[in-house]
Computed example of a mutant assay.
Amino acid sequence: MDHFSRSWNALLDAVAGLADEDFERPSGCTGWSVRDLVCHLVIDAQDVLITLVTPADTAPTVDAAGYWSLLDEPPSGDDPLDALIPRLAAAYGEPRWLKFHLDDVGSAAGRAARLADPGARVSTQGKVLTAGDYLGAYVLEWTLHHLDLTAHLPSAPEPPPAETLAAARALLERIAGAPFPGSLSDTDALLVGTGRRAPTGAEDLGELAARIPLILG
């Protein structure tokens, strides 16, 4: 729960510090600008609010790692929601309105997370899990998108907090079913593990080489 708050607050602060011209730069999400990514974060925040008030009365079916599905291929942009994001992002016009909406909805999502009972069961996308596991899964989302946000900025904001980078790496290793080499930093493990960059010749991934990239959906 603490990792959720730290990773989310750090990401909101990073967006708040963006210059207007940064919104037109590419993000680390293929095909999306920084503007598109920030719009996606608004929808993510709405999803958090919706899920935390969608109780379930059955036993959990997944944990934080099981929340994530592994896709065979990266998103093509043809999915209706993926295709909607750039159009919706453009409709905001000036970046300040997108910042305002993210701060408004994002602050509410952060408060809802702090007030949530970690043992309560919630339902989303046909899955049931505890609120604690659901919020834990989002630590990976926020941390990856923080890296995406700053991937191509000439003057990058603060990186994700070290403790949330470590928590996101630990969750990605659970999803992968094996640890990343200790020689990889947490940031590099996340970038290489999710296909955001290719491993270098000096980065020996061992048995993980056949399993990555892990395309999360």
Score class of each variant (00 low, 15 high):
Met1Gln: 05
Asp2Val: 10
Ser5Thr: 15
Arg6Val: 15
Trp8Thr: 01
Asn9Glu: 15
Ala10Thr: 15
Ala10Cys: 14
Asp13Thr: 11
Val15Ser: 13
Ala16Met: 13
Ala16Ile: 12
Leu18Met: 12
Asp20Pro: 06
Glu21Phe: 10
Glu21Arg: 10
Asp22Cys: 14
Phe23Glu: 03
Phe23Pro: 03
Glu24Thr: 12
Arg25Trp: 12
Arg25Asn: 11
Pro26Trp: 02
Pro26Gly: 04
Cys29Leu: 15
Gly31Asp: 14
Gly31Arg: 07
Ser33Leu: 10
Ser33Phe: 11
Ser33Val: 04
Val34Asp: 03
Val34Ser: 01
Arg35Glu: 12
Asp36Tyr: 14
Val42Arg: 01
Gln46Asn: 10
Val48Leu: 08
Leu49Cys: 06
Val53Thr: 09
Pro55Lys: 15
Thr58His: 07
Thr61Lys: 14
Asp63Trp: 08
Asp63Cys: 07
Ala65Glu: 02
Gly66Cys: 13
Gly66Trp: 14
Tyr67Lys: 06
Trp68Val: 08
Leu70Lys: 12
Asp72Thr: 05
Asp72Gly: 12
Asp72Ala: 08
Glu73Met: 03
Pro74Cys: 09
Pro74Tyr: 08
Ser76Met: 12
Ser76Asn: 13
Ser76Tyr: 04
Asp79Tyr: 15
Pro80Gln: 10
Leu81Cys: 09
Leu81Met: 02
Leu84Lys: 08
Leu84Phe: 11
Leu84Gln: 03
Ile85Thr: 13
Ala90Thr: 14
Tyr92Ala: 12
Tyr92Ser: 13
Tyr92Phe: 14
Tyr92Ile: 07
Trp97Thr: 01
Leu98Glu: 02
Leu98Trp: 07
Phe100Gly: 14
Phe100Thr: 12
His101Val: 10
Asp103Lys: 10
Ser107His: 07
Ala108Phe: 10
Ala109Leu: 04
Arg111Trp: 02
Ala116Phe: 01
Ala116Arg: 02
Asp117Asn: 14
Ala120Asp: 11
Arg121Pro: 13
Arg121Lys: 11
Val122Cys: 01
Ser123Trp: 04
Ser123Asn: 09
Gly126Phe: 06
Lys127Glu: 15
Lys127Val: 13
Val128Ile: 07
Thr130Leu: 06
Tyr134Asn: 03
Leu140Gln: 09
Leu140Ser: 05
Leu140Arg: 09
Trp142Gly: 02
Leu144Glu: 11
Leu144Arg: 15
His145Gly: 13
Leu149Gly: 12
Leu153Ala: 02
Pro154Ser: 11
Ser155Tyr: 13
Pro157Lys: 08
Glu158Gly: 00
Pro159Ser: 14
Ala162Gly: 02
Glu163Asn: 11
Leu165Gln: 04
Ala166Ser: 11
Arg169Cys: 10
Ala170Asp: 02
Ala170Glu: 01
Leu171Pro: 01
Leu171Tyr: 02
Leu172Thr: 04
Glu173Trp: 13
Ile175Ser: 05
Phe180Trp: 04
Phe180Ile: 00
Pro181Ile: 05
Ser183Arg: 13
Thr187Ile: 05
Leu190Thr: 01
Leu191Asp: 08
Gly193Glu: 00
Gly193Met: 04
Gly195Phe: 08
Arg196Ile: 15
Arg197Gln: 03
Pro199Phe: 10
Pro199Ala: 11
Thr200Cys: 04
Gly201Tyr: 07
Glu203Ala: 05
Asp204Pro: 00
Asp204His: 11
Leu205His: 03
Gly206Lys: 04
Glu207Ile: 06
Ala209Ile: 02
Ala209Cys: 07
Ala210Ser: 06
Arg211Phe: 12
Ile212Phe: 10
Ile212Gln: 02
Pro213Val: 05
Ile215Trp: 10
Gly217Trp: 00
